[in-house]
Computed example of a mutant assay.
Amino acid sequence: MRPVKLSIVLEWMESEGLLDTSDITQIVKNVPDAFEIAGFASVDLAGDADASFWVGDTVKSETNANGFASSLLGKVHAGLLFVPRGLAVDLSVAPSVGCIVPVENPYHAMVRFLEKFAGEPAGAPFIAESARVHASAVVEGSVGENAVVGPGCVIMRGATLGAGCVLEANVTVYPNVVVGENCVFQAGAVVGSRGFGFYEYGGVRRPVPHPAGVRIGHDCSFGANSVVAAGFLTPTTIGDHCHFDSFVQIAHNCRLGNNIYMASQSAVAGSVIVEDDVEFAGGAKAAGHLTIGKGARIAAKAGVTKSVPAGRTVSGFPADEISRWRRSMVRLRQMGEK
């Protein structure tokens, strides 16, 4: 996003009915008139010039901000922090926050802020001289040395494709996607599309914007029609040497490590952490907000509903340790034959 003065943000919030004018004198703490908000991040990762939000100690949130305790606010470094109106927040518990803004619904305020100020990343197209771009491709972002962009591909403004990458055909790369070197995307792959996230406000379900984009490491491959969704406040991330078959879905806010393999039609829901060396067999799925430990194996068609310890192999639905699941299947068949 482009930097915007804090005073402009507050004026806009007041005009939109998001900010009660009686709160203004209580929230700004020695902030210079020229102070600007230059970005956004989750409350645990926010920097001094970032906007963020906090939902309170116990209120659940769709953004994995559940249970962020007020005792931790002393470590927060946000420039602008939305908090629930009426919540007793002693400003001294967040000494490194430039401006605390009490609002009716912090989640809604954060979404509206993003819709107003995040915008699309700026930047002129750049194509390295050694890159090969098909005449039918549309390139508004940056393409590195020796990269290949095939027919029908679209690289949107604010996207960066590293050296040696290959986009085979009809691949779409959205804004704020950064791809490392030597990655391959087969036909129809989509990277950085808006995640499937909604929240309810005023009796209406509203879409959540996902402007944080995607970060992909080096030497990865993506099968035909695979999808990597963009993050909400922090990017969806994928490490190095990860390989995904066709029709693989990686949802918003996921964090994948290195050396991960996912077979066709496997998927991870939003905010899943996948540690290094994990393998998903065909059709395996993981529910959201889980951790798949280092070296875990998820058998074909398994449905993971809780976190999987490192090194564990699981199968079935709900997924269980594979030897126990096999014994359970034998017992079921025996019962069925009686």
Rank of each mutant, 00 (worst) to 15 (best):
R2D: 12
V4S: 09
K5T: 06
S7E: 14
L10S: 05
L10F: 06
M13E: 01
E14A: 10
L19V: 02
S22F: 06
S22V: 05
D23G: 02
I24D: 07
Q26D: 13
V28Y: 02
P32T: 11
D33I: 06
A34P: 04
G39S: 14
G47L: 11
D48F: 12
V55S: 15
G56H: 11
D57W: 07
K60D: 14
E62L: 15
T63C: 11
N66G: 11
G67K: 06
F68D: 05
A69M: 14
S71A: 15
L73R: 04
G79V: 04
G79M: 03
L80Q: 08
L81C: 00
F82Y: 03
R85F: 08
R85A: 14
A88S: 14
S92A: 14
A94M: 12
P102W: 01
P106Y: 07
R112W: 09
L114R: 09
E120F: 09
A124V: 13
P125M: 12
F126Y: 14
I127C: 12
I127V: 15
I127K: 13
A128H: 10
E129F: 03
S130A: 02
S130H: 03
H134L: 09
S136K: 02
V143R: 05
N146A: 04
A147C: 09
V149M: 03
P151G: 00
P151Q: 06
A159T: 06
T160Q: 10
G164W: 02
C165T: 03
L167F: 12
A169D: 09
V173M: 04
V179T: 07
N182Q: 10
F185D: 01
A187V: 08
A187T: 10
V190A: 08
F196G: 13
G197R: 08
Y199Q: 06
G202A: 10
V204C: 07
P207V: 10
P211I: 06
G213W: 02
D219G: 03
F222W: 04
G223T: 00
V228F: 05
A229Q: 15
A229F: 13
T237P: 07
T237A: 09
H241G: 02
F244S: 02
F244C: 07
I250S: 11
A251F: 08
L256P: 03
L256N: 05
N258A: 13
N259C: 12
N259S: 10
Y261V: 15
Y261F: 15
S264Q: 05
A269S: 11
E275A: 01
E279K: 15
K285C: 03
A286H: 04
A286I: 00
A286P: 00
G288W: 05
T291V: 10
I292G: 15
A300H: 04
R312G: 02
V314Q: 08
R324P: 06
S328Y: 03
S328Q: 12
S328V: 03
V330G: 05
G336D: 02
